[in-house]
Lab assay of single mutants.
Amino acid sequence: ALNRGDKVRIKRTESYWYGDVGTVASVEKSGILYPVIVRFDRVNYNGFSGSASGVNTNNFAENELELVQAAA
């Protein structure tokens, strides 16, 4: 299972961040479909780089994520 702070690569092909590595911000335990919230260094097309207006978190299912580096 994934944990907060883990570095993960995104495998959801239609995602803006496909192939990117993000950090797990939190994992919901309530049984929702996309329980893993991942935070990225770059914002998506809703904002400009360096601006706070873009979105830099997204929810994924565990099977859409590949663990790159476990949290220390």
Rank of each mutant, 00 (worst) to 15 (best):
A1F: 09
L2H: 04
L2A: 10
N3V: 11
N3M: 12
R4N: 10
R4W: 06
R4D: 09
G5Y: 03
V8Y: 00
V8W: 00
V8Q: 00
R9F: 06
R9M: 09
I10M: 01
I10K: 01
K11H: 12
K11E: 03
R12E: 06
T13Q: 09
E14K: 05
E14G: 09
E14D: 13
S15M: 01
S15I: 03
Y16L: 04
W17M: 01
W17F: 03
W17D: 15
W17E: 00
Y18R: 00
Y18P: 01
Y18N: 04
G19M: 12
D20T: 05
V21N: 01
V21C: 10
G22H: 01
T23P: 00
T23Y: 09
V24W: 00
V24P: 01
V24A: 00
A25V: 15
S26L: 11
S26G: 12
S26V: 09
E28T: 07
E28H: 07
K29D: 12
K29W: 10
K29C: 14
S30V: 11
G31Q: 13
G31H: 12
I32F: 08
L33P: 14
L33M: 12
Y34C: 13
P35E: 13
P35G: 07
I37R: 07
I37C: 15
V38K: 00
R39M: 11
F40I: 04
D41W: 04
R42D: 15
V43G: 06
V43R: 03
N44I: 10
Y45P: 15
Y45E: 15
Y45V: 15
N46S: 05
N46F: 09
F48G: 15
F48A: 15
F48C: 15
F48I: 14
S49M: 12
S49N: 13
S51H: 09
S51G: 09
A52P: 10
A52K: 07
S53K: 11
V55K: 04
V55E: 08
V55Y: 07
V55N: 06
N56K: 05
N56W: 05
N56L: 04
N56M: 06
T57P: 03
T57Q: 10
N59Q: 08
N59W: 12
F60A: 00
A61G: 10
A61T: 05
E62N: 08
E62H: 12
E62Y: 10
E64W: 02
E64Y: 02
L65A: 02
E66Q: 07
E66K: 03
E66D: 09
L67H: 03
V68Y: 05
V68S: 02
Q69A: 11
Q69V: 08
Q69L: 06
A70M: 11
A70I: 09
A70K: 14
A71F: 10
A71C: 14
A72T: 13
A72M: 11
